[in-house]
Design a protein around this nucleic acid. Structure first.
Lengths: 194, 194
DNA sequence: AAAAAAAGAATGAACATTCATTTTTATATA
DNA sequence: TATATAAAAATGAATGTTCATTCTTTTTTT
């Protein structure tokens, strides 16, 4: 147990270092040697945990994506009313993007560059199912516009990534008021207008 | 004239090659030698046109951003009615993102990674002024929600980037119908609801 | 005392940038 | 107009560095 514990801890430090360094410098400008140093480990040790650099970043992506969706759906029950359920998930996602900024920035970079394997990307998307189910239910009930999931995601969820990035750059502060406004815009863009 | 013409042509080829290679491989996985080869030029020649690799990518960014905004506002007049003006600009932007996919993908990658200098990024944003002016006018007239420009951009414009990327990945096809739906979502998220 | 984990140093490839020449272009002269 | 020459542009090869990965040895665990 002690051994396994130690290993997991080391692995976590490597993943954490990868996130921070890739956020600041990008994937290819992040040398394995720096990751090792930040994780207090020898460069060679990384290869005991990961096959190579690509594998390290793929696994990091999958892990962060899983953490993200776990957080998003933690308190959601799939029999909730549509709008309440959506609001809950939306605020959880917003929360994650603002509080777990490091993780969210990492995902944004992965999702907008060719740095992640196609397979790992697919793997990461799976966890979003509960939201897609909610939308399907909402469409059936005539509450949510009958649009492609991609369109719904583009308008209801993705703007949060943009706002997080501008916030991280210091151009803009996303406070409580803004958050409520953003939610209204998100809901306004996907709900059926009466 | 012949000489200058030739130079501009070479510079254009270098910028085009940079866009294509960075789109496919990312900034740091794109060697100068490959850029040179694709532009039919010696590696050393690049340094006659650009100070170094960072300068090359910065200038490419600024140039593409300028092309993007020029296209967006080409037919817009600043005395147009709010909704008509917005609709015009929105469709021009959509058009650009779908037709000039290479250019748009490049901008998306630049805007979501640390690959561009802060100064060049600022430079690129300036050209967006006509849209901000339109929004200011719309807010004054009570037609557009009194939100921060960043929020308006996040909901009205940025989703197009996400849709373009998913389209490029082949996950989703953004046809005429979808485009109309997307416009309705965009306008729905920023217009004052009556 | 054997096996597993970790380490630091070594290896070899890739790369940005520069250097020494060559080629092209522009200019001046006859 | 044709030729010589200076200047500019372009080149391929060289340079020195950085880096991912592996190798050999040491340390820790069982």
């Amino acid at each position: 147990m002690a051994k396994l514990q130690k290993s997991i801890d080391k692995r976590n430090r490597l993943i954490k270092a990868t996130i921070q360094l890739v956020n600041n410098n990008g994937f290819h400008a992040t040398p394995m040697s720096k990751i090792a140093k930040m994780a207090n480990v020898s460069p060679a040790t990384i290869y005991l945990y990961f096959k190579n650099k690509q594998d390290l970043v793929n696994q990091t992506y999958i892990e962060v994506k899983a953490k993200y969706t776990a957080y998003a759906f933690e308190t959601y029950k799939n029999d909730m009313p549509i709008e309440a359920g959506f609001k809950l998930i939306w605020y959880r996602i917003a929360d994650f993007k603002l509080k777990e900024c490091e993780n969210a920035m990492f995902l944004a970079q992965c999702d907008n560059t060719p740095m992640i394997d196609e397979a790992s990307r697919k793997e990461g998307i799976k966890n979003l199912q509960p939201l897609l189910d909610l939308w399907a239910r909402g469409k059936k009930e005539g509450i949510i516009k009958p649009l492609s999931d991609y369109l719904l995601y583009a308008y209801a969820i993705n703007p949060l990534s943009f706002l997080m990035i501008t916030q991280k750059r210091g151009d803009f502060q996303l406070d409580e008021t803004h958050l409520e406004e953003a939610y209204q815009s998100a809901w306004g863009s996907i709900k059926v207008c009466k």
